[in-house]
């Protein structure tokens, strides 16, 4: 891991501690000796209030590559997460997390977390990443909402 990457991740941690949105959490994993594994974080994204995603905190893993921030982190929900833009493996399909699209080194962890929260209730039907949720979202909204609510119970606060 480059010093640029370490410095940036330390700064991200500092900034997150100083200022993070309510209900979110994000922290580096710990090595067995208690030191921080700055390249691998665990985070939780609360569903927006008054949406079908509300009252739950959705777990995320964030892996920062060695050449972060030149390249974006890989952000994943648990496998099988139900959402039109989440691959069956849990990987999130979001333009700001795509090196070839809108990723910029200046994008912060807070922006990523808020971006993922926004994506939850505002899926992009033009970028399907899994079939069941994508199809239900586009063509069978009652089923989609029902499944999202069931998932919200699974991750209820």
């Amino acid at each position: 891991m480059s010093s640029l990457c370490i410095n940036r991740l330390q700064e991200e941690r500092k900034q997150w501690r100083k200022d993070h949105p309510f209900g979110f959490f994000a922290k580096p994993n710990k090595n067995s000796d208690g030191s921080l594994d700055l390249q691998n974080w665990t985070a939780g994204i609360p569903g927006k209030p008054n949406t079908i995603w509300a009252n739950a905190v959705y777990p995320l893993t964030i892996s920062f590559p060695d050449d972060y921030p030149s390249r974006p982190p890989k952000v994943k929900f648990p496998g099988g997460f139900y959402h039109p833009n989440i691959y069956p493996s849990g990987t999130i399909c979001l333009s700001i997390l795509n090196e070839a699209q809108d990723w910029r080194p200046a994008i912060t962890l807070k922006q990523i977390a808020l971006g993922v929260q926004e994506l939850l209730d505002s899926p992009n039907p033009d970028s399907p990443a899994q079939e069941p949720a994508w199809r239900a979202f586009g063509k069978d909204r009652p089923t989609y909402e029902k499944k999202v609510k069931e998932q919200a119970l699974k991750y209820a606060k």
Binding site: F22, G23, F25, K27, K30, D33, G34, S35
Partner: peptide
């Protein structure tokens, strides 16, 4: 509630942080 929960959460994180020491 949110602020108080967040406070308790931050304190819990603090305990996790100082445990290795």
């Amino acid at each position: 509630k949110d602020e108080f929960d967040s406070y308790r959460n931050d304190v819990a994180d603090f305990f996790e942080t100082i445990y290795p020491l």
